[in-house]
Nucleic acid binder design. Structure first.
Lengths: 341, 341
DNA sequence: CCATTCAGTGCAAACGTTTGCCCAAATAAA
DNA sequence: TTTATTTGGGCAAACGTTTGCACTGAATGG
């Protein structure tokens, strides 16, 4: 069951190794007939190029690396699934690394991935990351990069994001229209793009509805809700205000679920005493008690598109100069947790 | 920013390439002093061996492949996270493939992974798989394999599983002790190990409690709940029986959530008209309405242990003959969905 | 009819390691 | 002293590809 090599084909067909190699690659220097001959033989004998040898020669691995914060996060798990599905079809393999929201770990993962000579990278930044030089370096060295979800403009390349501002605005508007006047916002680290965009949408919607934007109604969780205590601290600060909010808009999957849990633990009724709505990709929000109003992101789609763009970048012959920023629509799903009281 | 190679070190230190290689590997033929010299230089200049070259020579890649049904499944996402965490520490990279419960896809993923010359494989079988010859072949060729969760005895190697029988028994016992007499079981494909074990536990508990085991109370979903319709069909069959069950024990994450959704859709109150409890790794079951009684598996732990065993296998000098079957405890978490009426 | 061109193919070096074998010097045994 | 043995290290082949260059024979142009 030893793999057949180009040499074997050459021997069998009385050709030289180089001819076989070129025939397989479809080089113009080889006659149609020879090409067919070689191809047929290769096919018949299930020839697979040795990737290590190919990699050694031309520094390609047909692997794409993924750098993100946490695999079990339902949003990212779906993104990975989307990535894997297009990679599979294009014969790429996917290597996933998680940084647990640590910038240091992000850098080490990156080193690891480039050491493995991945052909390109799909990146969603950690909440801690403020310095993008490690990405910039790689990019300048010509490694194709695509950012998704948590992006940066510090590197000029493709971006795939959800309509964070739009999603935030629509849920804020919805809360306002349901009669809530003091809408707080618990969000992730201020460093990352999605936070800024979501705050912007939240702020805009407040203004549209004639509600004040209050700095003290915005709470940041530097670890994006990875630690429950952090979310608890943010929530408790809000609850202990002299004029506590009557609704909370949460900016991420984990924050939303954390707040849900914490409010219940504290015996605060939803939405009676506190309305709750936020970004979440949990796939059965209607089963929660109360059912949860969510802003859903097209996670699988995001992974798909990001992977497609990356592979396109990898396989493009000439240098790509024209980078896109793809914005995917979010969807507001109204349920009981944001109902009027 | 070109990577430094062994040649560069050799040149700089006035040594031969082979000496450098051996010094780095700690071969006994090289003097302590030379080894130190080489190591220091390598360290200082951030030498990283070229993996393609290494792979080409000795067919190792320091990659481990993972084959499972679906990445976004919360159980498997956690398993992957566990795998990744130990792989990271041991300098392995993780390549994940998903088969969507298709045996054909499983085989193709396997080909892909071996083509990439992964050093070992972590496998959880698809629900469709009945023929294990593709695994047996690989195993006979000496590729280290570790099965987890959905395992088979057809290949003699390590297995890491949850205490499926125990978990099933404890939840069944719990339902019986809460007064339910007609406890049905909706489970996955009969081909996979976990199904058999869970049925066994269910059956044993019924007998312990003096309840009859009825074949018609056991419904199989061949795709493991991947399709909602399949679950719906199973559930509806139960509901339309002349003597319908008063409780349902579901055998997997997705089945549990599907049943929950479907019962709600059909206006059947839980646990009043139908109690529900089952295996699930959803991490906020207390937030559901009603809160959900679950059997939880140590998913992260399972991934960790499986990966550790695999790497041990990969790095073992002599052939391992003594294979383990590790059984991890499950945890029954009692909540409202299985309460007495 | 010779010079030029060109399609089609082969040769060999290179990519960065690993490793079997050989060799020199030093040490130990005789 | 001579002969083994050990120690430390180098040479070169090999892993499976890719690719610049050279070569051959035929076709084309003059």
């Amino acid at each position: 069951m030893e793999q057949i090599t180009i040499k074997d084909i050459a021997k069998a067909l009385q050709l030289s190794v180089s001819t076989v190699s070129r025939a397989l690659k479809g080089s113009y220097k080889i006659s149609e007939s020879t090409q067919r001959l070689v191809r047929d033989y290769a096919e018949k004998h299930n020839y697979k190029p040795n990737l290590n040898a190919q990699g050694l020669k031309n520094k390609k691995s047909r692997c794409i690396g993924v750098a993100l914060c946490s695999i079990p996060n339902s949003f990212f798990a779906e993104v990975i699934s989307g990535i894997e599905s297009v990679a599979y079809n294009k014969d790429y393999l996917v290597i996933v690394t998680q940084n647990f929201e640590s910038c240091e770990r992000e850098v080490r993962n990156l080193e690891n991935l480039t050491w493995r000579s991945v052909d390109g990278l799909l990146i969603s930044l950690s909440t801690e990351t403020e310095d993008y030089s490690h990405f910039q370096q790689l990019h300048e060295q010509g490694l194709p990069l695509v950012f998704f979800d948590r992006v940066t403009d510090a590197v000029r390349t493709h971006q795939v994001v959800a309509d964070n501002a739009g999603g935030a605005a629509s849920v804020t508007r919805h809360l306002a229209d349901n009669g809530y006047r003091r809408i707080a916002h618990i969000t992730s680290s201020p460093h990352i793009s999605i936070t800024k965009e979501r705050i912007a949408g939240y702020r805009q919607a407040l203004e549209e509805r004639g509600l004040p934007f209050r700095e003290d109604y915005v709470k940041y969780c530097l670890h994006g809700g990875m630690l429950m205590e952090e979310t608890a601290a943010a929530l408790d600060e809000l609850l202990q205000m002299t004029e506590p909010p009557d609704a909370i808009f949460t900016a991420s999957d984990r924050l939303t679920m954390n707040c849900f849990t914490l409010l219940r633990q504290r015996g605060i009724s939803i939405p009676g005493q506190m309305a709750l709505a936020g970004f979440s990709n949990f796939n059965s929000p209607e089963l929660l008690n109360p059912s949860l109003t969510t802003v859903k992101q097209p996670a699988f789609e995001m992974g798909k598109i990001a992977a497609e763009l990356l592979i396109q970048l990898i396989e493009s012959k000439r240098e790509v100069k024209d980078f896109q920023r793809i914005v995917l629509p979010t969807e507001l799903e109204v349920r009981a947790s944001s109902g009027c009281f």
